[in-house]
């Protein structure tokens, strides 16, 4: 009986041993579980935080991209605007250059016209201007004789002898121009060279001092390379109408006064001798 009781105690002891071990194991599992929970929570926290940071970074990048895209668009717009302005400046530069050249031509022409008081030299300068600056091949300068009311050629370039006839004021195109004081420009192609007609010039410019007409510049034919009149030519015609007239008139008066002065001087010398 004691033997049975001792065996039972041993079995109970063994069972308790197993049970304690089971308890320890369970305790250990619980601790491990706690640790894992903690780590999981930690991990979740980290991943939660890093997700927020990623979102933040992405958002910032997107904003930056939008800003750069806007800036790029603005730069492109500005570039186009500057390009337009550049084109505008270029065309304005060309206009200013052309205007500058025109002014240089006008300056040189008027400077030369008023550079002499010699009548023949004035005529020569007008011929040079009409030939070199306008590009005329056949043309003449006619002066009005107020005592006979007739126009006669005082200088010409390239014209045939049949043109050397006097024209009465009011007669034909040239006579009309001198009578009315209005410039004449023939309609149609100025390079139409089907026979030069000396009664129908291409251009006839009255030489006027205010409203007083003293003669005319008459152009019949242009140089082969001159295909049309430019704005500059019309400016030159207008300048010649006034400045050439003044230059011719003043040089004529000067030569007359020189002659008179020499006659008076001769008289004075004669009187002195007496």
């Amino acid at each position: 009986m004691d033997k049975d009781a001792g065996s039972l105690n041993k079995k109970v002891e063994d069972f308790l041993q197993v049970f304690r071990k089971g308890e320890e194991f369970t305790q250990e599992l619980l601790r491990e579980n706690e640790k894992l929970r903690y780590r999981l929570a930690q991990h979740e926290e980290v991943s939660k935080f890093s997700g927020r940071e990623g979102d933040f970074k992405l958002h910032t990048m997107e904003e930056r991209l939008r800003f750069l895209e806007d800036e790029n668009k603005n730069l492109l717009d500005r570039y186009r605007q500057v390009e337009e302005e550049n084109k505008d400046f270029a065309s304005r530069y060309i206009e200013v250059e052309a205007e500058n050249n025109n002014l240089a031509n006008l300056y040189v022409a008027s400077y030369q016209l008023h550079s002499t008081l010699d009548f023949n030299e004035s005529l020569k300068i007008i011929l040079e201007i009409v030939m070199n600056l306008i590009g005329a091949e056949e043309f003449s300068i006619m002066m009005l004789d107020e005592s006979t009311n007739e126009l006669s050629i005082v200088a010409q370039e390239g014209m045939g002898p049949e043109a050397h006839e006097n024209i009465k004021i009011g007669e034909g195109v040239i006579g009309d121009v001198v009578k009315n004081g209005e410039a004449f420009y023939r309609e149609g192609d100025p390079t139409d060279l089907s026979g030069v007609d000396y009664s129908h010039p291409l251009v006839c410019i009255p030489l006027k001092i205010k409203e007083h007409v003293i003669g005319a510049i008459v152009i019949y034919k242009l140089l082969i390379q001159k295909t049309q009149f430019s704005n500059m030519d019309f400016e030159l015609f207008s300048m010649l109408a006034g400045h050439a007239a003044t230059a011719l008139f003043s040089s004529k008066l000067y030569s007359q006064s020189e002659r008179k002065l020499s006659t008076i001087q001769s008289f004075l010398d004669l009187l002195k001798e007496k």
């Binding site: 050249n101 240089a104 031509n105 040189v108 022409a109 400077y111 030369q112 550079s115 300068i125 040079e128 201007i129 070199n132 600056l133």
Partner: peptide
């Protein structure tokens, strides 16, 4: 030979 042309070319 033309003073006008000389002056114009010189100007340019």
């Amino acid at each position: 030979d033309s003073p006008t042309m000389r002056q114009l070319i010189t100007f340019a």
